[in-house]
Every structure is written in C-alpha cells, then in structure tokens.
C-alpha cells in the first residue's frame, strides 16, 4: 500500500497527515510491534519503522539510545521485516527508515522484494542520495515501492528538483540543520523550505520533520506542510511511559492536526 493512501486520507479530512516513527525491536521485537500498533490505533496516518544500525549519524541521543537497546536485545534485519508484516494490515501504510549499509548487505533487490512481500510501502533513506541510488531506483520500480529521499535547507534549488523527481510517496523535508530530536520551538526555516519544494513537487506531498513534540507544534507545522513527522518525542514517550504515554502523545499530536 503506497504511502500516498495515508496522505490522501488526511487531505480528504482537510488536515495534514501524522507520520509517526518508532524503531523496530525497541525494547524487544514483540513490544516494538505492540507499540507500532498502538500508534496506529491512536491515529497516525503513516508509520515509519526504523531499522536499528550501529552507526546512526543522523540521529540524536533519544533515537541513538533506543536503537542501541534494540541491537543489544538482538534485533535483526529479518525482525524489521517481521515488524512490517505484523503492522501493515491495518489500512495505514508502513515505511521502513534505514541507513543504507544494512540494505546493501541484505541485497538491494532482495530487500525490496521481501519488504514488498511483508506489505511495506517503501523506504526512507537518510544517507542515500539519488546520485548513488541506481540500484534502489531499479529495485523500487521492480517491486512497486515508494522511495522517500530527504531534502534540507542547505539543498540548492537544482538538488531539490532532482531529489523530488526521484521521490515517490512523499518528499521528506528535514527542516533544521542537525540530528533528530525534539525541540522546544519550531524552525522558521521550515515554511521557506516547504515553499521551495512545492514549486517543483506538483501533487507529491511534503512531510516535515523538525523535532515536533506536541499537538500545538504539530498544528503549526500542519498549517504549511502535508505531513508532520514525529520521531524522537514518540520514542521518548514509549521509553519513559510505555504504551499509555505513547497512545496519549499520538492522540495529542493527531488532535493538534484535526483542529
């Protein structure tokens, strides 16, 4: 199921989509699956499942610690695919967000095949730029998967146009320069970046990730973006307060977008 299904549903309701991230296997594979399903029940429109990796250069401390825990508890690539399979049957598209080396090691086409078979929508690739993505472009065509590349405030207009042209599903705007993590105030650079992307993205939705942690912040971002991506705040909620806290935050974020 393409991620566009989630965006279209939100658009039909006159609001931005809520995109929620959790790493697979955190704290264990079974508990990670339960957490994703709780997030789905509480109102996310699109799910990102992180593949825990030994060298997460784009992630801040919250996600680093969670993925370290998942790895220490023995999570494997096949568990990530199992998590996709166990969460993708609920009408909410499920993407995998992964650093590139685990996919390359698994085999790019084999990973695409198995992700598609598990019901996954596609991949978000934070350290793979379209310039290096020939094999993934071919595999995502062959297996009809979404491919979500990132753009940033430092991207030139030429690179934004090139990157957007290679995206399918949505465009991931990293609206602050820095690693993942919840922030107190939203970035003033975000609306500008979204506007630059919109000039060339046509009907392709633009999701914004910039450290949103509350319904009020989600509402601010949802006013100018098609999707509001929340990661670290949800991981913190799960780590500190378990499923009840995760459900409560998801519902709060979703309520922020619905008002």
């Amino acid at each position: 199921m393409s991620v566009s299904v989630g965006y279209e549903k939100a658009r039909a309701e006159g609001r931005a989509a809520l995109v929620g991230y959790l790493p697979a296997g955190f704290p264990t594979v079974a508990e990670g699956i339960a957490a994703v399903n709780a997030m789905i029940e509480s109102g996310v429109d699109v799910v990102e499942i992180g593949l825990p990796y030994s060298d997460p250069v784009m992630d801040g401390p919250v996600i680093q610690r969670a993925t370290e825990t998942a790895l220490a508890n023995g999570v494997r690539t096949r568990d990530v695919l199992a998590t996709v399979e166990a969460t993708s049957g609920h009408g909410v598209p499920v993407l995998v967000m992964t650093y590139w080396n685990p996919v390359e090691k698994y085999g790019v086409d084999a990973f695409a095949r198995d992700l598609a078979a598990a019901g996954g929508a596609g991949l978000i690739t934070p350290d793979l730029i379209p310039d290096e993505a020939d094999e993934w472009l071919a595999a995502s065509e062959a297996h009809q998967l979404d491919r979500v590349f990132l753009v940033s405030p430092s991207s030139t207009d030429e690179r934004i146009a090139m990157t957007v042209a290679h995206c399918r599903g949505f465009v991931y705007a990293t609206a602050v320069m820095g690693v993942t993590g919840a922030r107190d105030s939203t970035s003033s650079a975000a609306p500008t970046l979204v506007e630059r992307i919109k000039r060339v993205s046509g009907s392709l939705p633009v999701g914004v990730g910039l450290g949103v942690r509350s319904g009020a912040q989600a509402a601010e971002v949802g006013a100018f973006a098609d999707g509001v991506i929340v990661g670290s705040a949800l991981v913190s909620a799960l780590a500190d307060g378990g499923l009840p806290a995760l459900r409560a935050l998801t519902a709060d974020l979703r309520a922020g977008l619905s008002t």
């Binding site: 250069v57 784009m58 590139w100 934070p126 350290d127 793979l128 730029i129 310039d131 290096e132 590349f149 990132l150 753009v151 940033s152 405030p153 430092s154 991207s155 030139t156 690179r159 990157t163 990293t174 320069m177």
Partner: peptide, 21 residues
C-alpha cells in the same frame, strides 16, 4: 567527478551535507 574510484567511494551522507561537500 562524483568521487568514485571504480565502484568505491562516492557520497553516502545526509543530503544536508551535500552543499558543504
């Protein structure tokens, strides 16, 4: 031009660093 030595090298980094590189 893109930093490849045959199949090796290249740029496997976040887009945010491409402008700086």
């Amino acid at each position: 031009e893109k930093g490849h030595f045959g199949p090796y090298g290249g740029r496997f980094v976040p887009e945010a660093l491409i402008a700086a590189l």
